[in-house]
Design a protein around this nucleic acid. Structure first.
Lengths: 142, 142
DNA sequence: CCAAACAAGTCAGAGAATCTGACTAAAGTG
DNA sequence: CACTTTAGTCAGATTCTCTGACTTGTTTGG
């Protein structure tokens, strides 16, 4: 096969991690879909606005709203008034949501450990540092 | 904001590249959707089987078939009998498909150049090499 | 060589995700 | 205060994706 493009090379580990974390969370009794998880993981600890989530997950506001509705119905997040803007509401993670996050974090750490064992400490940190720099020119939401 | 996870850090450049290439291809007069493109980019120069495409793009055979139908209708690929297996057909890129690929390749090269200018030669090559190693433990289709 | 297991792909149908366009209400701006 | 922008919702259509069942051809163990 031809050497895979950088795009594909980025996709593979991204998708691998995403899927394993999702599987772990679902298996632990927190049913969530992939699309919901992609929004959920972007909810800030202090709460996020819908518009922020949409921009960060790179979907429209409508899509983000649709998914937040479901996360709310599942008890993972709640919407509270935003004190600083009467139009907006803050989406915050509930207790149940935090439980799901904890499961996700465990699996995320496990995967990072696997990667560290495969690549070595130095290379994993290099990867992170390069990706952080790359973020400067590839993140539309900076 | 908290430091983004490795997952998000991988997602950002992946998605950035994907979107810009797609935009360029569409703007050049080759209408394709994102989902179609994700399958199309995996079609091998010598032709691919549906099952391969499905595994590589990480969707079901049915989804891959659905998307290949559309790529075929758009004139980007064709299905020819697979000489080595009467059940299978090879999906091959047509002339029109190759034209679209050429557009994509130009944009891909441009983006890689931007990344190279931002990161430096050495770091970009490091990124590629690390991702290639990471592929060993994250690619379900190896 | 043949029966059983397996693999490639399709068909049907349902559900999930996503978008565009139009809208309301609140904030910011000159 | 009018005007523009921003946050979010409503409605509707389209696209994507999956599960389950099936057909046809291939491989394999006895």
């Amino acid at each position: 096969m031809t050497d895979p493009s950088l795009g594909v090379l980025l996709f593979l580990p991204y998708r691998h991690m995403e899927q394993r974390i999702l599987d772990a969370v679902v298996a632990a009794g927190y049913p969530v879909t992939l699309a919901q998880a992609r929004v959920f993981q972007r909810v800030d600890a202090d709460g996020s606005r819908l518009t922020e989530l949409a921009a960060s997950a790179q979907v429209t506001k409508q899509t983000a709203g649709f998914l937040v509705d479901q996360l709310e119905a599942g008890g993972y997040v709640e919407r509270v008034p935003d004190p600083s803007d009467a139009r907006a509401r803050l989406i915050r993670i509930t207790d149940r949501g935090h439980q799901a996050v904890a499961i996700a974090r465990v699996m995320q750490d496990r995967i990072e450990t696997e990667w560290r064992e495969h690549l070595g400490d130095r290379e994993l940190e290099r990867l992170r540092s390069i990706l952080l720099r790359l973020r400067g020119i590839t993140d539309p939401w900076e």
